[in-house]
Design a protein around this nucleic acid. Structure first.
Lengths: 186, 186
DNA sequence: GTCTATAATATGATAGAC
DNA sequence: GTCTATCATATTATAGAC
């Protein structure tokens, strides 16, 4: 893995574990094994790092959602995979998704980063809305009245579930929070 | 208002707007109008401030929930008031609830503060579970199968709704996220 | 691309006068 | 209870050698 990628991986994990304002170039320096000054060659400012982190995260996450849509045949199976994707990314309760972390720190970012956060939400909602539309056709999720509203509720519940599980450090709290939604899968 | 209370109010707003690691004693100093050193008289360390912030927030929030339970006769009306309480506290999309903010920064806190965060969640869940039990009796919310599960989902959705609305700065996103739940109120 | 060295500023925190 | 003065350390960031 090249240095820049190693820095991004390290920064993403730290941001998701601690929050964006609770890690520094000094932390990255220790983890990756290059000097602080060298990090500025790859990311001149921390704002640049934030932008690249969020772009990479969004692209990677959306690619995995496309993967789910391609692999799982029913809406119910896709929803199950969607939750599993988030749960696996929580690292046992030690971190939240980058978008959750960045949403709380939104005042620390400039407009381009904020746009990326909102784009993450928008693309997630579009994917979920398509999922609930499919559910109306294939009947694999019960009680879908308005796919757009189910999508918005589903995104909120999966983000909130992470917060509760992060605070307790117990993934059982993540499962508990999504249970009423999971129960709707036939 | 005495100085200590002014400091708590200021710190709470800053923590909810920016995150706990993104405000300093210097910020408090400017807002309240006393020197940095004087703040340490009231809160020797920032950890002390965090603990007092979370205790005060939890007590105040739970008192307002008790208020809702005493005032609103039906479970449906109580749920509506619960959401309204959160929405009003978002200050037009400029901040989230202290518990959401602190949950992301959980690694910055010592055990007493983490306990307070989890106690906030536990007491919220107990209150919501009682609400959904009432709903089963008074029929003011449809589709309640397991009050504990509805409570867990409800807490997650209201926390996640804040994240989405904070990122966009638009309270319409908060309303959109809670809509499927609100629709269940008869 | 990475290093050493350094800058300018911010941080949480303490000592002691008033 | 608030102040001035100070501390040790951490922060983001830059200049210039290799």
């Amino acid at each position: 893995m090249d240095t820049k990628t190693a820095l991004l991986e390290s920064a993403e994990r730290l941001a998701r574990q601690r929050g964006f304002d609770a890690f520094s170039y000094a932390d990255l320096s220790k983890e990756v094994g290059i000097r602080k000054a060298s990090i500025h060659h790859h990311f001149p400012t921390k704002a640049d790092l934030a932008a690249e982190l969020m772009i990479r995260y969004r692209e990677s996450f959306m690619a995995s959602l496309d993967d789910i849509a391609r692999t799982e045949p029913t809406a119910g199976a896709q929803l199950t995979a969607y939750f599993a994707r988030y749960k696996a990314a929580m690292n046992g309760g030690a971190q939240v998704c980058l978008c959750v972390s960045f949403s709380v720190s939104v005042s620390s970012f400039d407009a381009p980063v904020v746009r990326q956060i909102n784009r993450f939400h928008a693309e997630s909602l579009a994917w979920l809305e398509r999922l609930f539309e499919l559910a109306q056709r294939d009947g694999s999720i019960v009680g879908v009245v308005d796919p757009a509203e189910d999508a918005q509720a589903c995104l909120a519940v999966v983000e909130g579930a992470q917060l509760v599980a992060r605070a307790s450090g117990d993934l059982a709290d993540f499962d508990a929070a999504i249970r009423t939604t999971v129960r709707r899968v036939v």
